[in-house]
Amino acid sequence: MREQISFKSVIQTVFRDYLVLVAIALLVIITAIVEPKFLTTGNMTNIMRQFGPLIMVALGMTFVIIGGFIDLSVSGMLSLVAVVTISLIEPLGQVGALIVGLCLGAFCGYLNSVLILVSGAMKQAEALFITFGMSTVYGALALILSGGRTKQMSWIKADTSIFKAIGTGTVGFLSVSFIMFLVCLLLLYIFQNKTYMGRAIYLTGGNKTAAELAGIPIKRSIAFIYTISGLMTALGAIVLFSRVTTASPVIGKGYETNAILSVVVGGTTLVGGNGSVLRTVLGTTLVILLSNCMNLLGVSVYMQYMMRGAILILAIWLDNRKQL
C-alpha cells in the first residue's frame, strides 16, 4: 500500500519543496517592502558573490549527507586550502597554485575517507567526531603555515589574473563565480543522476548493509563522497579568498554548520539515501537571502547565529515529522 502514489503523498511532496520556495518568496517580499535597497542591482550582485563560497561547500556536503555521513572538517579544510593557495601564487604562478589548492582539498577529503574506512566508522556520529578532529588538525596547520597572520593576495602585479576574474569579474549580468557555480551544478547533477557512482552513493546512504550485499562498492563510494566534498571545499576556498583578496587562517569558521544547514533546509534528509544537488541550491539561496535580509534590516550578527540554530532544529524536526 505504501508504494501507491496517493494524492496526499503528492501534496506532501509538493509542500516540502514548496515550503522552501514560500519561505524565500516571503523573505524577498517582506524585505523589499521594508527596505527598498534590497532590490537594487548592487545588492543583487552582492548576493550573487556571497552565494559563491557557501554553495560550493554545500554542494560537496550534499553528497556526504546523501551517502549517510557528515563532514565537519570543511571549516578547517577551507582555511588550509585558502592559506596554502594564496601563499603559492608567488612561487608557483596562478595556475600552479590553483591546481595545488584543488589537489590539496581533494587529498584532505580523501584522507578523511581513509580514516573512516580503516577504522570502520560506518555511523554518522563516528564520522562526525573523526571529521571534527581532522578539522582541528587542518585548522591548526593553516595557523602554523600562516604564522597566525592574514595572508594578502598578490595579484596586483599581473595584468590578467584568474583570481581577480573569479573575485570581481562579470560576464554580462552574471558574475564569474556564479558561472562557476552553474558549471559545477551541471557537472554534479549529471554525476549524481547519470553515472553509476552517483547512484551507488544514493544506495550507500539508503542502507549500507543491503548495498554491500547487492554488490555496490560502498567503500569506493565513501571515498568518492569525501573526495568530492574536499574538492568542492577547495573550490569554495578559492572563490572566497578571490572575493575578499585575503586569507585569514580562520576564514572557514562556521562554514560547516552553514553548509549542513543549507543542505538540510533544502530538503535532503540527514538519514541519507535521498536528496539532490538542486534542493541544496534552494536551501543555500534561503540561507544567503536570510543573512542578507537580516543585515539590511539591521538584525545583529549574534541574533542571526541564534536564528540559524533555530532554523536548523526546525528544519530537522519538520523533516522528521514527514518520515513518521
Binding site: 556520529a125 554548520t257 540527514l270 538519514v271 547565529y305 540559524r308 540554530g309 533555530a310 536548523l312 524536526w317
Partner: peptide
C-alpha cells in the same frame, strides 16, 4: 530526530 545534529543546532542557538 538524530541526537547529534539536533543538539548541535541547539548549541548554536544557545551560543547565539
Amino acid at each position: 530526530t538524530e541526537p547529534f545534529i539536533i543538539t548541535l543546532g541547539m548549541g548554536m542557538l544557545l551560543t547565539g
